[in-house]
């Protein structure tokens, strides 16, 4: 029902597909493929086009994920500043590998290639916020904060 409201809000906007997908993901955390036909119909696109756009952009997720998303930057500057150690430690702390969600459904761990925060490497992004100069201890504090706050 909610998804229908998003579709209605965006169907007449030129180039409205991306903002629509964004709104859906913001709402429920991912874009379920079951809604492709409705979107396609409303925006006069084929289901394949909708599928193509969803899978093209790293931002869109096709499956439900944890309540929070932790992304670790693995690009040049962060590598130089030791993100390799950070990712190994966080994986073991959370007990998951990249693209997996912790058993309690709290965190999904994702790799990311440059957060544009290279001046403060190593960087991570927790939900919508970027944090620089990180180490395992500081990230653990952030994790505790979002779990209890």
């Amino acid at each position: 029902m909610l998804i229908q409201a998003h579709i209605q809000a965006h169907q007449h906007v030129p180039g409205g597909l991306m903002p629509l997908l964004h709104a859906i993901q913001d709402d429920i955390g991912y874009v379920p493929d079951a809604v492709y036909p409705d979107i396609a119909k409303a925006l006069a696109l084929s289901v394949a086009e909708v599928h193509g756009v969803v899978t093209f952009y790293h931002h869109f997720r096709t499956h439900p994920i944890g309540r929070h998303v932790l992304q670790i930057c693995r690009a040049e500057s962060c590598q130089a500043m030791g993100c390799g150690k950070l990712e190994a430690e966080l994986k073991s702390r959370l007990g998951v590998d990249y693209h997996q969600t912790t058993q309690d459904g709290q965190f999904t761990l994702l790799p990311v290639y440059c957060l544009g925060n290279c001046g403060c490497s190593p960087s991570v992004m927790l939900d919508d916020e970027v944090y620089g100069r990180m180490d395992t201890e500081k990230v653990s504090e952030l994790i505790d904060e979002v779990c209890h706050g």
């Binding site: 925060n117 403060c120 916020e129 970027v130 944090y131 620089g132 100069r133």
Partner: peptide, 10 residues
């Protein structure tokens, strides 16, 4: 500063 958050600013 080149940083995006309140916690660490260089």
């Amino acid at each position: 500063s080149t940083l995006a958050n309140k916690k660490t600013v260089i």
